[in-house]
Design a binder for these strands. Structure first.
Lengths: 220, 220, 220, 220
DNA sequence: CATGAATGAGTCTTCATTCAT
DNA sequence: GATGAATGAAGACTCATTCAT
């Protein structure tokens, strides 16, 4: 049974099949409450880690009682998943927009747009991005990730396809590689596995890298 | 407080002062027990996820009682860390060897060696590789990851430096990017976020990618 | 790390910075719960001894779940310590009051007051007194005992000092001995090591004893 | 079911009904082993406290395996009880001897002998004495304490009775009080509740105290 | 006989979830 | 609706005891 995520019922008009939410945020107060919960969740997640991110702490941080939390989410997982979904959708939408923007432009240019948009989003709230990886690993998180990945891959694919100066036989494959390449180093940085050196030059190097890669698909 | 890792007491003869190893496997069955624990840990991790990877389940899966687990590891974390360390060390050693092998060879060739070694190791036990990512995020896991990353980066760096046909001003930076690039798509596949298509062509594409990247550092 | 004792949050209005009291009994039932815990603790302690005085048993005896116990006390020790402190403070206050009362009176009279007050308190809830000896030996219990002892010794000392008919060079020493003398036989009785004979005559004998002792400090 | 204590089968010829010991220490080695166990027990008890005084630690400290420990004692309690019994018997025997020695002497003199013997024994190994109090609180310990107390009371009673210069109607009562009085301050010191001042003057003050007490039973 | 690996019941403690007020 | 007290299943970990080697 999949509970409606906040994302689904409050921020988008996705045609996803929506089960009855416990309570519809028809009133302003409700929306504010839900947002407070999200903020609190991310804060607690960041501060205390996934395991210590308990419903009580979230509620406390959000300035309400546990009981109220359960008025809006049927269980802890539903809340965490909602927060993750929100985050993922945010990134996805951004990347989609960037790809839209890069449509029809020469590959060198569109790559720069993509890289820039991707990194900007990921590193806007590094703590948040990092914290959310822990949720992502859990069962329901994977489902979301796969879904969002598909959307991003699709967007990149379109962009690659529309580039006037290259030709790729299997653009989906290349799009997947591109996404993986963007994600790898970004993740390493978020998990604090690298030197500041890398962080400083990441954007530049990724552009270099992807241009070098796609150069090889150049039309004669 | 650092507990002796399996690695330390089973594969090396480090004279490191070891903080009370719960028990060194002197008898034959002890060794078997420890190995059973490792296997079971990875299985449970894969099957149930980190959060549900409890000592009870591990022991049960390993066909022993919880007590036995605690004969060899002072706590859950120590076991998880030991398993991670074993795995990481295995990969690291392999990559180091590959880099050694690629020393002095033209970059196109050495890249192929590196990619091949890296992927081979990662995908030899996909389940294992995947499962261990979750531990890596944990406190003590990070320490290990950082340590191993350093070793790998260092090895790649040396290899890049020794390539006769390229010149890189900041080889460490590039090495870090290379590692990130290898890891990103590999991870996506392991976490089952991609299509079989990607898996089939990963090696080829990564070689293409890295060659394109490093091509740009070619000596005139 | 000092946990807030029941004493502190229920009987005094200390402005002491309290390290996260698990919960202050704001609702009526909370107070009842805390009291039930104290009673149960003493009962289990008496019936089963310190080692078998487990949180489960206490909760069970108090007619609640373990979880509830932990709503009010962060761990077993905190509960035991709180109960001990409550008890000790009760006795101490009584003895202090008795000493106050004996101030300035001839020694024979003040001794009678002291002995009477001490025994009355100790034997009012013999079970309780007995049970608490076992906690007293524990780490945090010792601290409390020492503290309370100091207060009692100090009170006795003042009383001795104020007696018009004796003169003692080292009243603290004598006060300590007096306290020890009161405690020894009382303890023996509480631990059921003696005959009823002793219990019946204890008060009389102690008065006899202490008078004989202090007689020797008589002014000429 | 009462298991034979070491004490019973190895050091005294008590007519106590003795159940078959697990193993009779007919060989020299056995006696040595048993002694090693006793020593180890007291050391661990002293060092780690009753709760941490595990069979494994005792065996380790005694330089043998747990299995061997169980060759000599059917369970942990039996060992602890045996050690306590040994200790108590030692003190008891000493006090009995002292009382024997004080027989027929004037009360002032015999009191000095008693006090001196009692304190000497108690403070010879303060750590040991203190540690053993924790065992004494447990079920089977009490039985022993009661038994030994009876013997001591009896001895003191005889001594009091034989004193040429006093007459006591109920010597058993007085003997109990005397013992309580000796034990109270001694215990306070052992539990480190007092000042060094008290420790230094204890003997003197106790003699003063008891003389003052018994003076009141002087024959005309 | 000695050893020490294995056992598992029993401890403390946490936390998602419910429900009376 | 909101609250927060109560619940109890579940997890980590310990240790007395047994028994195969």
């Amino acid at each position: 049974m999949k509970y409606p995520s906040v994302f689904e019922f409050a921020f988008m008009n996705t045609p996803t099949t929506v089960l009855k939410p416990r309570k519809s945020p028809v009133q302003v107060r409700s929306t504010a409450t839900v947002e407070a919960l999200h903020t609190a969740t991310i804060q607690v997640l960041t501060r205390d880690g996934l395991m210590r991110c308990t419903t009580t702490r979230i509620a406390e941080r959000a300035g309400m009682s546990v009981g109220s939390l359960y008025q809006y989410y049927p269980n802890r997982d539903a809340l965490l998943t909602a927060v993750l979904e929100l985050h993922l959708n945010n990134i996805t939408a951004c990347v989609e927009k960037a790809c839209q923007e890069g449509m029809g432009k020469p590959i060198a240019e569109s790559i720069a747009i993509l890289v820039s948009a991707f990194l900007q989003k990921k590193f806007k709230n590094p703590e948040e991005s990092k914290a959310l990886y822990s949720i992502a690993a859990e069962h329901d998180g994977l489902r979301l990730i796969v879904m969002m990945r598909k959307r991003i891959v699709s967007a990149i694919e379109s962009m690659l396809h529309s580039a006037p100066d290259i030709h790729i036989d299997d653009p989906e494959l290349v799009a997947q590689i591109v996404l993986g390449v963007l994600d790898g180093p970004a993740r390493a940085i978020l998990e604090e596995l690298t030197t500041p050196q890398v962080e400083a030059n990441l954007s530049e190097q990724l552009i270099l890298l992807l241009r070098g890669y796609l150069q090889q698909y150049k039309k004669i």
